[in-house]
Design a protein around this nucleic acid. Sequence first.
DNA 1: CCTCCTTTACAGACCGGCGGTATGTATAAA
DNA 2: TTTATACATACCGCCGGTCTGTAAAGGAGG
Lengths: 216, 216
Amino acid sequence: MSRNKYPEETVQKILDTAHDLFLKQGYEQTSMQSIVEALGLSKGAIYHHFKSKEELLIRVLERDYEQHQRTLEETLHEPGLTGLQKIRRLVYASLTSPSQREQVRIALPVYQNPQIAVREIYQLIEYSTPHLCRLIEEGNADGSLSVQYPYETAETLQLLFTLILHPQFISFTRGEWLRRVLFFRELCAKLGIPVIDDKLLAVFEEYFDAISCKPN
Amino acid sequence: MSRNKYPEETVQKILDTAHDLFLKQGYEQTSMQSIVEALGLSKGAIYHHFKSKEELLIRVLERDYEQHQRTLEETLHEPGLTGLQKIRRLVYASLTSPSQREQVRIALPVYQNPQIAVREIYQLIEYSTPHLCRLIEEGNADGSLSVQYPYETAETLQLLFTLILHPQFISFTRGEWLRRVLFFRELCAKLGIPVIDDKLLAVFEEYFDAISCKPN
DNA sequence: CCTCCTTTACAGACCGGCGGTATGTATAAA
DNA sequence: TTTATACATACCGCCGGTCTGTAAAGGAGG
């Protein structure tokens, strides 16, 4: 078979398959050959659309990120919210997003897939942190917040939040995780951003159970 | 040549060479063959002492860590210090250790060497955090500190401190870095551990200049 | 509508280099 | 003299990536 009329579908199929295998087996442990076989296509097909394995990884993560970003921005397009309220919505959306949950569930522990973990953290710092920073500044402007170092605060919270969001990174038991969430709540409050109210706290609990019910 | 009388020296030479190349070129980008050539020995020599490339990496990092740990513990074996004073000494020792500085200077940016970065973070959490946690509890006991979540606080500070210590990770300019240090100081204070006094702040500044004077 | 030609979307053989192994050998120790 | 150790070296399968081949899609001209 040759000369598909809709090559974009092929590209998406390649991205789907690669995404799946990268998260399940790890980036390094997934050979291009194995992607080809799971895909039912040939090596030439992939290398026609992607110039290297690394570009394939980057595109996979980019697509993920864009999707995630889109859902987050949707939750903010409601006028009349204060900066703090918007940040709360952001956290809530991150915790309840099904695709986010799915991804955390199937992803390998970080130390088994360092390439992907590090790239995700960089994407976080590069794209999400400025976004959160802007919300903090909004909050400072509308009076709902009073934060002295908006950017640095945003960066720190993003980082810690990401680590907490992924129980496979540092801790495993429910108790340890809850302690971390409580600590994180206090930390946020001390930094002048009391994001985690009681309602969000309940969502955190529910999140952990949803994530860890089907360990792989 | 065969049957060296002092094989331990060979092991150390292998570790030295691997350490050097891993940091300079990255783990993945360093082939066993290139280590062999830089070493002046043969592939058989390495695989006689190390069962895989990954074990070689682990041993390299372990040796680093043990050395680092030894120098840190030396600085604490002076009786009559409060918990807070011990923590200050720890930070000071980390900042002024020549081997630490050397390592940060020659190391590749994290995103170019994710395997090593992730393993270092894990070692941090596994070994250093409990250590710092104990010091915080000491401080709680002797009255120099009052921290509600000692372990989680230790973990957070370790993580942020490590990121700040490595300017190649997130920021580059001196100004950005100093802002982060100031923010970190406030964060520590708000968490109940005012580690960074004016003297330490000066050491931080000096550290940055020492690190970035010879970029590679 | 048919033909011709270019371009695109793959297929599949092939390549150098990688991590790792198997086997050989010289020497120190017993 | 024997055995165990500390290497050297030839070799292997697989990996990421390239090259070349090929068949179909799409446009241009009649």
